[in-house]
């Protein structure tokens, strides 16, 4: 496979290479940034006259919640890194979950995307990555398969994505990556180490490439938020626009979705085959931290999925089993059907 077009070299005097990992809080990507730093640390040359190879990793902080999109930024460079400011344009973007929004921000046509998906061309169209270079690897499938072998239900796609990712840097060999993985997971037993190394190996081998440069794959338009001048802000940064959460659908953080069992069984209930479970006791309404249970005429009529973060409290508190939980990806698929 010829992937010369996907390589980035770092040399003396060239600007540092910046990349950003887009993942969610539960995907095992908390460690990738520091693993990249460890990779480079092993390669770093210190001598009397020269230091070469430097790396940094900085996670971006905001609200904390499983399923909340999280970013980690990495920089690697031949020369020592002296500035920790965020770059305007990233050379590489790694997308661990294609449902995360805003992944094309701060990129240009030279940006390489590494995506957790089956087909690079299809995913480029689907989430608007073109015209760019895309590397795709079905990392979640690899992780599920390999972890199943050791009897684990873990689905962390991180190591498989890293395996595909190192194609970009010809000076990093897969063996070096395996060594870092071994170092990172050594506390979790040999089985886990080996499974993760296999994931990385498969990620490296099964990566697929799509050079979208020059094609007409349209680029997703990201509306830049309107930034206010200081005199347009209210004193003390007060905000009149209560209800501006309209613009910020935190429902996109969800990894599992509450399902109303009665809604699912609607036909059977009508036919008299099943009984209604919900008694409109309103316990879920009182307990939902996001006020997402919709009520009309003293009856529960639905769930506001724009803001439901999928915490599952409604499921826990319902005494009648009227609310079930479904993985979000499965629910989305069912929606389409």
């Amino acid at each position: 496979m010829n992937n010369k077009n996907f390589e980035i070299q770092i040399e003396k005097g060239t600007p540092p290479v910046n990349f950003r990992w887009h993942a969610r809080g539960h995907m095992g990507f908390e460690n990738v940034g520091t693993m990249i730093v460890s990779l480079m640390a092993a390669k770093k040359i210190h001598s009397e006259t020269e230091t070469s190879g430097d790396a940094s990793s900085s996670p971006l902080f905001g609200a904390e919640k499983e399923g909340k999109p999280k970013e980690t930024d990495n920089t690697i460079s031949y020369d020592p890194i002296e500035s920790f400011c965020k770059p305007k344009i990233f050379d590489v973007k790694i997308i661990a979950d294609t449902t995360i929004e805003g992944v094309t921000a701060n990129t240009n046509e030279e940006t390489i995307f590494v995506v957790n998906a089956k087909d690079p061309e299809e995913v480029a169209r689907q989430i608007g990555l073109g015209p760019s270079r895309v590397i795709a690897v079905d990392a979640t499938a690899i992780a599920i398969a390999e972890m199943k072998k050791i009897g684990s239900k873990a689905t962390f796609p991180n190591t498989a994505v890293m395996g595909a990712f190192i194609h970009i840097f010809p000076f990093i060999s897969p063996e070096e990556l395996y060594a870092v993985i071994k170092q990172k997971y050594r506390g979790r037993g040999e089985e886990v180490v080996d499974a993760n190394i296999t994931c990385a190996k498969r990620g490296y081998e099964e990566a697929k490439f799509f050079d979208g440069r020059g094609t007409d794959v349209s680029k997703a338009k990201i509306g830049a938020p309107k930034l206010l001048r200081w005199d347009e802000m209210l004193p003390g940064a007060a905000v009149y626009a209560t209800g501006n959460m309209d613009e910020n659908h935190t429902g996109s953080w969800r990894t599992s979705r509450p399902i109303r069992v009665d809604e699912m069984n609607a036909e059977k209930i009508l036919a008299g085959l099943k009984k209604t479970r919900c008694t409109n006791c309103m316990i879920c309404v009182a307990c939902c931290p996001e006020d997402c249970i919709l009520v009309e005429n003293e009856k529960v009529v639905g769930i506001n999925l724009d803001y439901c973060k999928g915490c599952g409290i409604c499921n826990d508190v319902c005494p009648f089993g009227a609310i079930g939980i479904k993985p979000e990806e499965k629910a989305k698929k069912d929606d389409k059907e």
């Binding site: 930034l227 200081w230 004193p235």
Partner: peptide
């Protein structure tokens, strides 16, 4: 995004 502007207002 806006902290600098808020502080300048102050």
């Amino acid at each position: 995004e806006h902290y600098l502007e808020a502080k300048f207002g102050q």
